[in-house]
């Protein structure tokens, strides 16, 4: 479909022309991770024990932060109205939009995570599990967060509300993702967690776009 190709071109152009939107969540991710050794003390054993949860909480907050502006500029300049009125299925368009956003911001986050993991003292054998869990988990975070972003895009200060709506929905991903990492850290198999994360990702890919489209239609109609 040519419209999907055009959408990809458009989104990539928009993201490349404001690289700050991509970089800021990454810097935020690194800063949050760096805060914990400063707050807890730098004992390697303690840091290694809390590293799985810490990396995941930081990644989750960074994804959430990056999504606040996902639909904002399109809403303000009327592009969303045009998308709602288009004969193309809105859910499909929005799925593509969220995936492009994830490819640029989520994937960068996944690639940065092993570096931060090593700084927290995670053994190298855990890094593939860290990568795999984030690779499966962050798309779910992006898709669920996009539902919240779609519902709050019409509000002047939607940032805090977005967090309030979306963070409870993030809990299963957080449990499974940090659980996988913890299992790997203790030398236990982590395949079960990763499979669960994969099924959550499949579920989110199938259902979240419908909710995103419904949310955007409501926000545009206001």
């Amino acid at each position: 479909m040519s419209v999907l190709a055009e959408l990809l071109k458009r989104e990539v152009r928009l993201l490349c022309r404001r690289p700050g939107e991509l970089l800021n969540p990454l810097v935020f991710f690194a800063i949050v991770v760096a805060l914990f050794p400063l707050a807890l003390g730098a004992q390697p054993q303690l840091l290694q024990a809390v590293a799985p949860g810490l990396v995941w909480v930081a990644a989750l907050l960074a994804v959430l932060l990056s999504l606040e502006g996902l639909f904002r500029s399109d809403f303000e300049d009327g592009s969303l109205e045009q998308m709602v009125l288009s004969p193309q299925p809105l859910a499909l368009l929005m799925l593509a939009k969220v995936l492009v956003h994830w490819l640029f911001s989520g994937l960068a986050l996944v690639l940065l995570a092993p570096l931060l993991g090593v700084m927290l003292g995670l053994p190298l054998v855990c890094l593939p599990v860290l990568l795999a869990s984030l690779l499966l988990g962050t798309p779910v975070l992006s898709l669920l967060g996009a539902i919240g972003a779609a519902l709050t895009v019409g509000l002047k200060r939607g940032g805090l509300l977005l967090a309030l709506l979306v963070l409870p929905l993030y809990i299963p991903v957080l449990i499974l993702g940090s659980g996988a990492l913890q299992a790997a850290l203790q030398g236990l198999p982590s395949g079960g967690y990763l499979l669960w994360l994969a099924s959550l990702a499949a579920l989110a890919l199938a259902l979240a776009p419908l909710a995103i489209a419904a949310g955007l239609r409501i926000s545009v109609a206001e």
Binding site: I218, S219, E222
Partner: peptide
């Protein structure tokens, strides 16, 4: 948070 009551109702329905 949503001022318009109809929109607020539908948004809460989706959520």
């Amino acid at each position: 948070a949503i001022g318009n009551r109809d929109s607020a109702g539908k948004a809460c329905a989706v959520l």
